[in-house]
């Protein structure tokens, strides 16, 4: 039964990602198919058909700048056209700051003697990739337990057995996503416009209690079997400070809806991973000969410290 829940969640996530992939490919000019960064200092533009060499190879035909700095033009050192005349490579004098989206304006595109007018296109890293990096970031790189040291009470309380760990992790993820989305909505459309952001602590904790109560009621009515499995963990969710930390992070960093969803999901799954890893070790520890002074929590802390050191290796990693 548990596996079907996990499967359902996975299908939902995949469908969502697929949708994003499709929407991420739009370009501003019909003849420009794709733009992308290549290496550290070049940009590749793919056209739908062959372009005329004379006009395309003229450096003055292109102006490129970083989106926030429209007045500072980047100097192009070289323009190359592939043999099939569809792929153009612009090479720049300096390294490009790929974290910023770049804007390219092409004065004129000529294809087979016909002028197709000017084009104004942007180059950026795929938004999907960015969202994915938010997800992975919250899950591993900035794991809330091992890199931000939050939610420790519940973490040490429920990581004795693998089954408990999985149950807690899944319950937590569901409530987390639910309450974070509500918190985002409320913050963006009520608290911020009316300058009530000093009320955020009260509002967020209220929302969390509310969503715990809601999930409790819904689960009890819809699926008593599932409720029996996960109901006990619902009470513990509210004692976990990650559930308050995520809405506060969303508010402080001005994330949009999609990014908020990814952060909440990453935080939940990251907590699940941390619990599972810890539970695996602690089940083994039961059999080990631990000195009496270290039995119980002290040794669990030392193990968590070792995990945290291992997770330090992820820090600063950038994906996409």
């Amino acid at each position: 039964m548990k596996t079907t829940t996990v499967k359902n969640v996975l299908v939902c996530v995949l469908a969502l990602l697929g949708l994003l992939l499709l929407s991420g490919c739009g370009q501003e000019h019909p003849f420009v198919q794709k733009t992308a960064f290549k290496d550290t200092s070049s940009i590749v533009i793919k056209f739908a058909g062959p372009v005329d060499e004379g006009r395309a190879k003229d450096i003055s035909n292109y102006t490129v700048y970083e989106k926030p700095d429209p007045d500072i033009k980047l100097k192009i050192s070289q323009v190359e056209l592939s043999p099939d005349k569809r792929t153009l490579t612009l090479t720049f004098e300096r390294e490009l700051n790929q974290k910023q989206p770049h804007m390219i304006s092409i004065k004129e595109i000529n294809s087979e003697g016909r002028s197709l007018g000017s084009a104004f296109v942007s180059v950026k890293k795929l938004y999907l990739g960015y969202l994915f990096s938010v997800l992975i970031g919250a899950m591993l790189i900035n794991n809330f337990v091992f890199s931000k040291y939050l939610g420790l009470c519940v973490f040490f309380g429920t990581s004795q057995k693998k089954s408990t760990a999985v149950g807690m992790g899944i319950t937590f993820t569901i409530v987390m996503v639910f309450s974070a989305m509500m918190a985002w909505f409320l913050y963006q459309f009520v608290l911020k416009p009316y300058r009530l952001d000093f009320l955020q602590i009260v509002v967020f904790i209220g929302l969390v209690s509310l969503s715990v109560q809601a999930v409790d009621t819904i689960l009890r009515k819809l699926n008593p079997v599932l409720f029996k499995a996960f109901g006990v963990y619902l009470v513990l969710v509210i004692a976990n400070c990650i559930i308050i930390a995520v809405p506060l992070t969303l508010a402080a960093n001005e994330y949009n809806a999609m990014e908020s969803l990814m952060l909440a999901l990453g935080a939940g799954v990251g907590f699940l991973i941390a619990l599972f890893l810890m539970a695996s070790v602690r089940e083994r520890l039961e059999l080990a000969n631990v000195p009496p002074t270290y039995r119980g929590l002290p040794i669990a802390f030392v193990v968590a410290g070792l995990f945290a050191l291992a997770f330090l290796g992820f820090s600063g990693m950038s994906i996409f």
Binding site: S147, Y149, P298, V302, A304, G305
Partner: peptide, 18 residues
């Protein structure tokens, strides 16, 4: 280093237990 907080708390608890 951030991770050392875990070790410190663990050692302190062990001392209290001892």
């Amino acid at each position: 280093l951030p991770a050392a907080g875990f070790f410190c708390v663990g050692f302190m608890m062990a001392i209290f237990n001892y």
